[in-house]
Design a protein around this nucleic acid. Structure first.
Length: 484
RNA sequence: GCCCCCAUCGUCUAGAGGCCUAGGACACCGCCCUUUCACGGCGAAGGCACCGGUUCGAAUCCGGUUGGGGGUACCA
C-alpha cells in the first residue's frame, strides 16, 4: 500500500454533528495508524448554505475533539478552476453535454415516470441536441447545466472495506448533473475531482453515500483517475431509529462541549458507536484507538446514539482524572461563576482542588460542578424549600443546631478531626442518631440534603460561613414556628 | 414504487458450524458499603425477528417473509 491519504469532507451546516464527528474520528484514526495524511476539505458548493459562521462551527468541533488535520482546510468554492478543467475534459471527450431542461420540466418528467411505474431517471433527451437546436434554446434565454453521459449498460461494483462487495445495475444510473446553472459543480463531481487531485487513497464516509458511489466510479473512469478504496460507515440514529438530527436534542459537538462533556469521552464513545475491539474493553485512550482501530471491525448496521452511555463514560473520565487536571479544566468556568479570582492565589487553588476531590465522583458533566460547588465559595445559600421543611422544621432541630453552633465557635482548630468528637458528643447529649444531626447540619450549610461527606464540607466551607449558616437556620426555624 | 445496505438483551456490541444452557458494557431492579448523594462491590432480569432449507449439529451457511436504515435533486 502506498502512503495513506484520507479526508474528512463536511459541508458547512453550522456545526459538527456527532455523525460527522465520528466519520472524522475514523478517518483520523486510520490516518494516524498508517502514518498517513488526514486532509480536511470543506464542501461549500451549496452557495445558499455556506457561510463563514457555519464553517467555523465545524472547525471548532474538530479542534475540541483534537482531530487535527495535516492538510487543509481546502474549500471547494476556491477550487473552481480544477472542476472547470475536468468538466471541459469530459465535454471534449464527448462524455458530457449541455442540458436545457428546466427544473420544472424535470420534475414533471419524474412524476410522469413514477406514474408509469418506471424509474424516475433522466431520459437523456438533451444528449443528441444539434448545434441549431442548442442555439435556439439559448436564444430563448434558457440556462443550461452539464450532464455526465453515463454508461447505462452492465454493472458497476466496488469492494467496500466495511460492507464488502456492492453491485449496482447501471440502468439505475442516469445522466446526472455535474455542473449547476449557478456556475458551481455538483457534489458528485466535486468529490471525485478533489479526491483524485488530492490523491485520496481511502474514502471513509457515511453510509448515505453508498448509492452515489457507482456514479462517482464512472466519473473516475471517464476522467482517467485511479479509483480509491471506499469504506462506508453506518449511520447514527436517534432513539426513534430515524437518522439522528436536531430534533433528537443535542447533536452538535460544540453543544456537548458547552454542556461539560470531555473530548476524551466523546472520542471514546463515538469510536465505540459502530466499532468494537474485543468487547471486553470499553475504555480507550486516543493512542489505544489509533493502535487498535480497524475498518474491518466497523459494524454493518446503524447504531442508536445513547446519551446515557456517553454520560456514564464522561463520568468515568472525570473520576479518573487527577485533581490538578480537573482543576485546569474547570478553572475558566469557576472564574466565570465567581468562585475563583482571575489570578487564583495558592490558597484559592488548594481549596478549589479539595472541593473538586469531594465532588469528583458525584458529577458526570463538568457543568454540574458549578451548582454542586457554589456553597463552598459564596455567602448565600439557596435553600431547597421542600427539604428545609422536611428536615429543618422538625421539633428539636433548633436546639441541636444551637448547641452545635456554640461548640463550633469554641473549637480551637476547625478541622475534620476536631469536628467528629463534637458530633459524637452531641448524639449523646440529645440521645439521637448521627443522621438526626448530620442531615439538619447539611441542609443548613448547603441548602439541600445531598452533598459530600459533612466533615469535609464544613471545613471547606469554613468556620465563619458554617456558623453563620447555622445561625440563619436557627432563625429560619424560629420564624417558622412563630408563623404557625 | 425502484435500487443499495442491514437484522443477537431497551441501547452499543462479542460471536466467523460444535467452546453458546449466547459473553460484556450502559440503562433498569435488588443487596452490601454508608450520616445524605455519588463512587465502589455483589446479584437479578432481559436477546439470537419469523419461516423454510443445508448439516450428525446453526445465532453462525442458503432462500424467502417481515422489519429497519440509506438513496432515488441544478443538497451535500
Amino acid at each position: 500500500m502506498g502512503k495513506v491519504r484520507v479526508r474528512f469532507a463536511p459541508s458547512p451546516t453550522g456545526y459538527l454533528h456527532v455523525g460527522g464527528a465520528r466519520t472524522a474520528l475514523y478517518n483520523y484514526l486510520f490516518a494516524k495508524q498508517n502514518q498517513g495524511t488526514f486532509v480536511l476539505r470543506i464542501e461549500d458548493t451549496d452557495l445558499a448554505r455556506s457561510t463563514e459562521e457555519s464553517i467555523n462551527g465545524v472547525l471548532e468541533g474538530m479542534e475540541f475533539l483534537g482531530l487535527t488535520w495535516d492538510e487543509g482546510p481546502y474549500f471547494q468554492s476556491k477550487r473552481l478552476e480544477y472542476y472547470k478543467e475536468a468538466a471541459d475534459k469530459l465535454l471534449a471527450a464527448g462524455r458530457a453535454y449541455r442540458c436545457y431542461c428546466t427544473p420544472e420540466e424535470l420534475d414533471q418528467m419524474r412524476k410522469a415516470a413514477l406514474e408509469r411505474k418506471e424509474d424516475p431517471v433522466y431520459d437523456g433527451r438533451c444528449r443528441h441536441l444539434t448545434e441549431e437546436q442548442r442555439a435556439e434554446l439559448e436564444a430563448q434565454g434558457r440556462t443550461s447545466v452539464l450532464r455526465f453521459k453515463a454508461d447505462n449498460e452492465g454493472e458497476t461494483s466496488f469492494d467496500d472495506l466495511i460492507k464488502g462487495q456492492i453491485t449496482f445495475d447501471n440502468k439505475q444510473i442516469d445522466d446526472f448533473v455535474i455542473w449547476k446553472s449557478d456556475g458551481m459543480p455538483t457534489y458528485n463531481f466535486g468529490v471525485v475531482v478533489d479526491d483524485a487531485l488530492m490523491e485520496i487513497t481511502h474514502v471513509i464516509r457515511g453510509d448515505d453515500h453508498v448509492s452515489n458511489t457507482p456514479k462517482q466510479i464512472q466519473l473516475y473512469h471517464a476522467l482517467g483517475y485511479p479509483v480509491p478504496k471506499f469504506a462506508h460507515v453506518p449511520m447514527i440514529l436517534g432513539e426513534d431509529r430515524t437518522r439522528l438530527s436536531k430534533r433528537h436534542g443535542a447533536t452538535s459537538v460544540t453543544q456537548f462541549r458547552d454542556e461539560g462533556y470531555l473530548p476524551e469521552a466523546m472520542n471514546n464513545y463515538l469510536a465505540l458507536l459502530g466499532w468494537s475491539y474485543d468487547d471486553s474493553q470499553t475504555l480507550f485512550s486516543m493512542d489505544e484507538l489509533i493502535e487498535k482501530f480497524s475498518l474491518e471491525r466497523v459494524s454493518h448496521n446503524p447504531a442508536v446514539f445513547d446519551i446515557q452511555k456517553l454520560q456514564w463514560m464522561n463520568g468515568v473520565y472525570i473520576r479518573d482524572m487527577d485533581i490538578d487536571q480537573l482543576y485546569i479544566r474547570v478553572l475558566a468556568q469557576w472564574q466565570k461563576a465567581g468562585f475563583l479570582s482571575e489570578n487564583p492565589s495558592e490558597e484559592e487553588a488548594v481549596k478549589a482542588k479539595a472541593v473538586l476531590k469531594e465532588l469528583q465522583s458525584r458529577v458526570k458533566l463538568l457543568n454540574e460542578l458549578d451548582e454542586a460547588a457554589y456553597y463552598f465559595f459564596q455567602d448565600e445559600v439557596r435553600y431547597n424549600q421542600a427539604v428545609v421543611e422536611k428536615i429543618l422544621f422538625k421539633p428539636g432541630v433548633a436546639d441541636i443546631l444551637s448547641h452545635l453552633l456554640n461548640e463550633l465557635l469554641q473549637l480551637k482548630e476547625f478541622t475534620e478531626e476536631n469536628l467528629e468528637p463534637i458530633f459524637k458528643a452531641t448524639i449523646e447529649k440529645f440521645d439521637c442518631k448521627l443522621g438526626n444531626i448530620m442531615q439538619p447540619v447539611r441542609v443548613a450549610v448547603t441548602g439541600t440534603n445531598v452533598s459530600p461527606s459533612i466533615y469535609p464540607v464544613l471545613t471547606l466551607v469554613g468556620r465563619a460561613r458554617t456558623c453563620q449558616r447555622l445561625r440563619d437556620a436557627v432563625e429560619m426555624i424560629k420564624a417558622n414556628e412563630k408563623g404557625e
